[in-house]
Amino acid sequence: MRFKKKDLVRLYRNLVRARKFDQAAIRLLGEGKFTSFFHAAYGGEAPGVGGTTFLRQDDYIYAHHRGHGIPHAAGKGADLFSFMAEHCGKITGSCKGITGFHACDPEYGMLGAGGTIGSAFPVSVGWGLAAQKAGKGQVAVCFFGDSSAGRGTMHEGMNMAANWRLPVVWVCENNGMGQFVPIKDAYPLEDIASMAAAYGMPGVVVDGQDVVAVAEAVMAAVERARKGKGPSLVECKCLRFRPHVEGAPDWVHAEVRPAEEIERLKKRDPVTLYRKKLLKQGILTEKELEKIDGEIDAEVQEMERFCETGAYPDPSILQNALYAD
């Protein structure tokens, strides 16, 4: 896919939205306004944003849990206000406050989420199947972490999708860690992408801090899937600036991850990198970038008001909620 100026601007806007909503989530959790936990995306927003911004509205996505899917929802154009309100446990939330952290926006191809790692793979196969049956050229994009690849469900899902040439794109967000365990100590090869060969599908590695590189690689795989050529695996090498979950220690095995290490990683901040690139290529000026940033700051403020003013759900909403009519 060749990106035009307006595409690149959109990508910037979504990336900054992902960043600022994720930062707001970290803050709101700290202020005790969240009813549940939060796994920040900070530093690793680019795969979610780059992998979704140019999808069709009716494409399906299974978001990864970093930022609980804020980057993915931001890129897909789903409603971030209700997603944040969900975290605040409000009736205005994406699940009426019933989950406290799941995105669910069927109009935008987000049919729900889960809290057990590895559940994304087989469910995404089902979306790929539905897309194939419908024959409208939709794809299903499944985002997952490097360490999630340890689950056996990944093998089942990838094999099924490859075997039936389903329009599924597997996007691995490899931030080098799975909670306290470096991926190098949980998988013997360098690249998760090398798993693709086992299923006879293309597997590529891209710089996951470069949002354009992610978008290019994912969209190439998406176009291929739309043509009926089957699944692909795109591995994005990315970073995580926060602990695995907010409020928990930032360990690597049994050692605290040194602050200097995080400072070093921050030199590859995906937002800063993309800003520099846009400036250097003369696509946007400093002023134009600031204008976008300001608009998103205002949106974040509005979101906080939205979360604040929403009511908590009444228990009666659960009364007939277990089964469909």
Binding site: G89, G100, P313, L318
Partner: peptide
């Protein structure tokens, strides 16, 4: 209660 355990403020109803 006979339902999946809800999160947030609804948990206490279950």
């Amino acid at each position: 209660a006979n339902m999946p355990i809800p999160g947030g403020v609804l948990e206490k109803t279950c």
